[in-house]
Structure formats: structure tokens, C-alpha cells
């Protein structure tokens, strides 16, 4: 016996709010919701209204694709733009320290093979990348661990460990401003399709798919928040809500949790497939790592 969609949504909203909001909710003086969150951020409309697009946003808009930067408040954008204000650059600095740190049985550091980290400029734009020797695609994270194990004979770093986040952020930052241009031919095609299927699959207690927010309603408000197009060009990203930096896979996990769905392990093939589909979908957007988001 199906519940009406309204009831289901209301129930879902309650679950969503209770589980996802240990912190503040939209609250006026009385603790009651602001009646019109839709009007709360007129700059979004102003920013997106053609033809008056803010020139500063132009690099973050490619055709119909809009980076999450475009949907962020000006204060959050300012935080991303300044290297001291942007806490993500602390991870870049940590990565720099690790780049020259000798580890493992071979007595090597990253720098032993690659020289200065600037040699990584432009490398991240083609990731995830097909690795024939492994017969699978590798993310930047996986490539780093491949180097650690194969070339350095060191232990791989765990997904979401401070070290792997720092190194991934450092390497992607070397491609900051360059357009994402992953290969989409050969065996990558199959992974794009696999990620696409996941993106459109209804999941969890809310019975939603990624597209219900990010394709159907980007730029619109969900409560007080502006939905984005779900682009991946800024990861790893510093999220104000996390009070820290995290990977794309952690963000995907958060999304599934918010949909009240089972999550996959970080680094799993499901998240890699989604990463590949989303990278293809956001093709051409500039890498912003480390970005700053709400």
C-alpha cells in the first residue's frame, strides 16, 4: 500500500533533519524557521541571470556546467581564493612535507623519482586514468598508493588518512585552474556507464537518486541551502560543515547517508565509478583543489 508522496516526503524530511543536523537549523529569534528561505540569497539569481554573469565567475562556468563555486556565497568564494584564508592550503603544505619524506624499504621519497612537486603540474587533469597493468582505472589516491607500494616499498596510506588527503590535495593543486580532461574511450567507457547507472539509481529510505537534486534542481533552494550541480572539480575540498578537508568519496558517502541509504566503503569500485562518471560529466571545468564549500 503506497503512501502518498507528500507523506513520504514529510517523513523523509523529518528523518533527514533529525539525523543530519546536530548543529544549527534555520532559526530566527524565536527558533522558528524563516518563512521564506527562497529569498534568502538573491545574489545567486543575480549571479546566474544572463547576460549579467559576474566576470569573476566566468572561469567556473563552462557551457551549462557550473562549478559549486558559482553557488557558494561570496564570503565562501573569498575564503577559497586566498591561500591563507583557505584552510585547505594547510593540507597542501603538509603534502609538501611528505613529498620529500623518505619511506619504505627502497629508501625513496616521491621526490626521488619525480623531482620537485611542480613536475606534477597538469597530471591530475587526466585522472581517474586507465592503468593497463592493473586492468582497472586508478584515482589520484590509488596512484599515490601504487607508487608507495611498488616504487617505495612502503605501506599504502588509508583512504581519508591525513597523509593521503594531504598528498592528493598537493598533487591536484598543481593542476589548479586547468580543465578536467579525463579519457573517455576504451575501457573507461564501461566505467563511465557504471557510474552513470549508480547516479540515476534510486536509493535508500528517501527513494531518491543523485539526479533528483543535482540535475533537476540545481540553483534552487532545499531549505536554506542552494543545491549545486554536484561537480567534482574542487576535491579534496574544505567543507565548513566538516570543519576540515575531505575526499570526494567522503562527500559521496555523506550524500548517501543523507538519502538514508547504505554507503559503500571509501575507495570502493562504486565510488570510483561515480567519480569517473562525474569527472566525465564535469569535463572542462577547472580543477579548484583545494576548494572551499559550505
Amino acid at each position: 500500500m503506497p503512501m502518498s508522496r507528500g507523506v513520504l516526503c514529510a517523513l523523509a524530511g523529518f528523518v533527514l533533519a533529525v539525523f543530519s543536523c546536530p548543529g544549527p537549523v534555520v532559526a530566527g529569534e524565536s527558533g522558528v524557521a524563516s518563512p521564506s528561505p527562497v529569498d534568502a540569497a538573491p545574489h545567486i539569481d543575480a549571479a546566474l541571470a544572463a547576460p549579467r554573469i559576474d566576470a569573476a565567475l566566468a572561469p567556473y562556468i563552462v557551457g551549462a556546467k557550473r562549478s559549486g563555486y558559482v553557488y557558494a556565497l561570496p564570503e565562501t568564494r573569498a575564503m577559497q581564493d586566498d591561500e591563507i584564508m583557505n584552510p585547505g592550503f594547510a593540507w597542501v603544505e603538509r603534502g609538501r612535507g611528505l613529498w620529500t619524506e623518505v619511506e619504505g624499504a627502497n629508501g625513496k621519497s616521491c621526490a626521488s623519482c619525480h623531482g620537485p612537486v611542480e613536475s606534477m603540474a597538469g597530471k591530475a587533469v587526466s585522472y581517474p586514468k586507465w592503468k593497463a597493468s592493473m586492468n582497472r582505472p586508478v584515482t589520484v589516491e590509488r596512484q599515490i598508493n601504487f607508487c608507495r607500494v611498488a616504487a617505495m616499498k612502503a605501506e599504502p596510506w588509508e583512504h581519508e588518512s591525513p597523509q593521503l588527503l594531504a598528498m592528493t590535495t598537493l598533487i591536484k593543486q598543481q593542476s589548479r585552474g586547468l580543465p578536467m580532461s579525463m579519457a573517455d574511450d576504451g575501457p573507461m567507457r564501461e566505467w563511465i556507464d557504471r557510474g552513470k547507472a549508480l547516479y540515476f539509481a534510486r536509493r535508500g529510505q528517501l527513494d531518491m537518486s543523485c539526479k533528483h537534486c543535482h540535475d533537476d534542481h540545481p540553483g534552487e533552494k532545499l531549505r536554506a541551502e542552494t543545491l549545486s550541480q554536484a561537480h567534482v572539480n574542487g576535491f579534496p575540498t574544505y567543507r565548513l560543515g566538516w570543519q576540515g578537508l575531505g575526499s570526494l568519496h567522503r562527500r559521496l558517502e555523506t550524500c548517501y547517508e543523507q538519502m538514508r541509504a547504505e554507503t559503500y566503503p571509501l575507495g570502493s569500485d562504486e565510488y570510483v565509478a561515480l567519480e569517473i562518471f562525474l569527472t566525465d560529466r564535469g569535463r572542462g571545468l577547472p580543477i579548484e583543489t583545494p576548494s572551499v564549500r559550505r
Binding site: F14, L16, H217
Partner: peptide, 27 residues
């Protein structure tokens, strides 16, 4: 099924209902 869209109203209703509930609990 895939193509069915949740309307913006559905999303807002969902979010809003949760919100009121939380506001009550948190008061």
C-alpha cells in the same frame, strides 16, 4: 521510475517538515 522528478515543492515540504520537528525538539 528514473525519470520521475521530485518537484521542488516535494523537496521543500520534506525539508520543512523535518525542520519544524527539529525546532520543536531543540527549543
Amino acid at each position: 521510475e528514473n525519470e520521475r522528478r521530485l518537484s521542488r515543492r516535494d523537496l521543500l515540504v520534506a525539508a520543512g517538515t523535518g525542520l519544524v520537528a527539529v525546532a520543536g525538539i531543540a527549543l
